[in-house]
Design a protein around this nucleic acid. Sequence first.
DNA 1: GTTTGTGCAAATCATTTGCACCGCG
DNA 2: CGCGGTGCAAATGATTTGCACAAAC
Lengths: 164, 164
Amino acid sequence: MKKEIKKQHFQKEVEKEMEIFEDLLKKDGLKVTAQRLLVAEKIFSLHSHFTAESLSDMFKDKRDEISKATIYRILSIMVKANLLIENDFGKDYKYYEHIIGHEHHDHIICMDCNRIVEFFEPKIEELQEKIAESNNFTIKGHSLNIYANCKKGSSCEHLNSNYK
Amino acid sequence: MKKEIKKQHFQKEVEKEMEIFEDLLKKDGLKVTAQRLLVAEKIFSLHSHFTAESLSDMFKDKRDEISKATIYRILSIMVKANLLIENDFGKDYKYYEHIIGHEHHDHIICMDCNRIVEFFEPKIEELQEKIAESNNFTIKGHSLNIYANCKKGSSCEHLNSNYK
DNA sequence: GTTTGTGCAAATCATTTGCACCGCG
DNA sequence: CGCGGTGCAAATGATTTGCACAAAC
């Protein structure tokens, strides 16, 4: 029962997000295509980090296969529109996460199992602001990645990487 | 006169660093070649961030031109030996800085002029340690980049980018 | 109908690698 | 000498792009 409620909640969220996305397309004179809707819906329904590759794979088995070129073009639109955050975790490909309903946060990247953990520390944010200020800069953004190992016996050991 | 003292100081520093580098090569059974000495000496004498490209360019006009492949191979040796830090500033190439005599620090990257400013904030370091700890991780490293614009009237406006 | 999007294959660009020759130890 | 190092050119791999055709408005 609880599960059902949660699912409905998520569906409602996704609908709301899809509306924002479609409005954005129209506002910018971009066309509402099947590929854009499918990709955006998939992205909004994901609740973890993904790569262009992993996103592409999600359409591999379906009749709705979408070319990598198009995937990249849609990701680019959504990043520019601030619907998506592009993360560089030191690999040679990018990680994405959708931003609506997700407060700003930083990341711990586990070097053992590739797990990505989010955290938010207001004091760090505040200190960054001060540092930029005292150096005569205006902060436009930041990226803080903690690279770490999971300790022996942590739940990490049981997980497989979802990330290539 | 002061300048002279400073220059001597730097030269002494570089000599010390070169000794460390040569010892490292020998210890690891690697050969002491002209290219390795030239590149290391150049790196130790630099006091700002550089790229494989910019480093390569520094040898372009001299009779001692060194191939990019060799440059990359030497950079790799020095990074593995902890003589060099490899930084990802959100561009599609890496930035390097030599580490001997340079305390750990984080970076502000100016999006207007590409200037890179270093800073160190012990409180942020401490908070990161706590965050990792409370999530059952052992920190192996971190990267904190603040992306910013220089304020109107700052010295930034007069500088040209040294980075491609 | 015109303009924009898509898929494909080719291009790009930093970095890596195979290989033949070179030079340190 | 013998093995590791270097330079060259080709390979790599994620992402981008030109182009012809297809779909949206």
